[in-house]
Amino acid sequence: METLITFLRLVLLSMVPFVLASQGTMLGGRTGIFNVAQEGIMLLGASLGFLVSYQVGNNFVGMLAAMAAGAVFGLLLAYFTTTLKMNQFFIGLSLFFIGVGLSTLLPKLIIGITLSPPLIPTLPEVSIPLLSQIPLLGPILFRQNGLVYFSIVLSLLLWYFLYRTQRGLELRAVGENPMTADSLGINVVRARYWTAILGGALIGLAGAYLPMVYTGTFTEAMTRGRGWLAIALTFFGGWSPLTILTGSLFFAGVEVLAFRAQVIGLALPYQYLLMVPYLATILIMILTFRKARVPAFLGQNYDREKRNL
């Protein structure tokens, strides 16, 4: 019993970077902007989030810095694709490389090389009064760090916004058929900008989570492909906030299982266990990809002046 509770607690804990990065991806995609720089933005968020927390001595400020960096990358993506109408994948991959490069450069510039890794305090557990006393559910759901709650609330809010408000209806229309949206007076360009920026901020925050919860420090390539997995997860979740939330549980579950198997010491080289999340992803994608509902205009740029589409 105790093992199960611990397992589920860890699943919820590890779900956060997936939720944040995928919701960020989803948000941009809903207006047609397909971000593929997640891995780079997350690494930069992890690096910058850690550095700022370390220097300022406040994790929250570190998170804000990571979000700001992500937002700048989102802004760049929106500018190059929406205003300059350049290829989204080309720009996305460029931003990915810039993010990776900066993430390793910044610690060397700011802290330099040290014997023992510099550490920041990890995020504290926030127990919710009364609710955390419920047997079973209490420890799993209500004794977590603040970002666990945030990611769940964010997912619910995003769902409500997209499907229960006028702005949400308009926003989804932009990603489905921007020409129609434009012909009805909806500002396509503005929608693409703000979703790309906010989406980038969420992805940056997803990166900052790693040093602030798992390790207390930044190490190179510490995202270990979670950014790429977030793209797969977004497809798996049908570009819909609630399905992404449940999908994140699954991805986190596989990650925790693979980690547990390592700790227990299965008679397998640990490299095989490291592969498990990615193999599971490929399998899931094969099984679900055909049915996945994708915004119709995903990855494309809109130009009103062009005759016919």
């Binding site: 006028q166 489905e176 058929n177 009805l184 509902r293």
Partner: peptide, 19 residues
């Protein structure tokens, strides 16, 4: 036609107007 094909008829009609 300039329509959002996965929206309902009503959603297409009210899209972009004050709800």
């Amino acid at each position: 036609f300039l329509q959002i094909s996965n929206y309902t008829v009503l959603e297409n009609i009210v899209l972009g107007t004050g709800i």
